[in-house]
Amino acid sequence: MSSPDPSTAPTLEDLPGFHIRRLQQIAVAVFLEETQAHGVTPVQYAALAAVQRQPGIDQRTLARTIGFDTSTIGSVIDRLEARGWMLRNASASDRRVRLLTLTAEGEALLNAVQPGMLRAQARMLEPLPEAQRADFMAMLRVLVDGNNEFSRAPSAPLSGRGSD
């Protein structure tokens, strides 16, 4: 079997996956910079925001909602619970199921983090002309939704997505 010809191989700069990975690194860095005073990660923020939107959501549904591994969502919730931001409550109908709610401190944290989170989102889109930002977001949704099945943690967003 012969080696591929390097002169015909695409460069990294021609590969969408390369740019998507870089953009994800940038998104995390900008989020952490804008919210550093609160010590919350993007995954923790997503979990808190999803629980705020649907109090009493179970851990498995939360994981699917935010596109996170069901096997590791428990450790995220452990950290949120240890910080006093989220509570796990046993379901009345199935004691094995844990239903999630935010504490008053968790609600306050989301309110405090929101301005920085919104600044981070604006900073990520800032290089685009304003007229292209909505189109870019629409294209991102098409790519994510169209490739969702290939994720290690396919998401099943809460109803009303995109209307926020």
Rank of each mutant, 00 (worst) to 15 (best):
A108K: 13
T8D: 10
G160T: 11
N147M: 11
P55A: 10
P10K: 06
F150L: 13
R119N: 14
V97N: 02
L128K: 11
A49I: 00
Q54V: 04
A138K: 11
R161M: 08
V51F: 07
E126P: 08
H19S: 10
R79T: 06
A29L: 05
L87V: 14
N147K: 01
T11R: 15
S151I: 07
T70K: 07
G56C: 11
I66C: 09
N148D: 14
Q24T: 08
P6A: 11
D69F: 03
R141T: 08
I66M: 11
E34R: 09
S93G: 00
L118F: 01
T65D: 13
N147V: 07
D145A: 14
L140Y: 02
Q54E: 14
A50H: 02
A37D: 09
F136S: 07
V30M: 05
L99P: 01
E81C: 06
R161A: 14
R95E: 13
A134T: 03
F31S: 05
Q114T: 04
T8F: 06
V97Q: 01
R83Y: 02
L143I: 12
R79D: 09
R79H: 08
Q25D: 15
A50C: 14
P129I: 04
V97A: 00
T8P: 02
R60E: 13
T72P: 03
A90D: 08
Y45P: 01
N89D: 05
S163D: 02
A104M: 12
L32H: 07
R21A: 14
M139P: 00
P157M: 01
R79N: 10
S2D: 05
A108I: 09
P129V: 02
L99Q: 14
Q59R: 12
A49T: 14
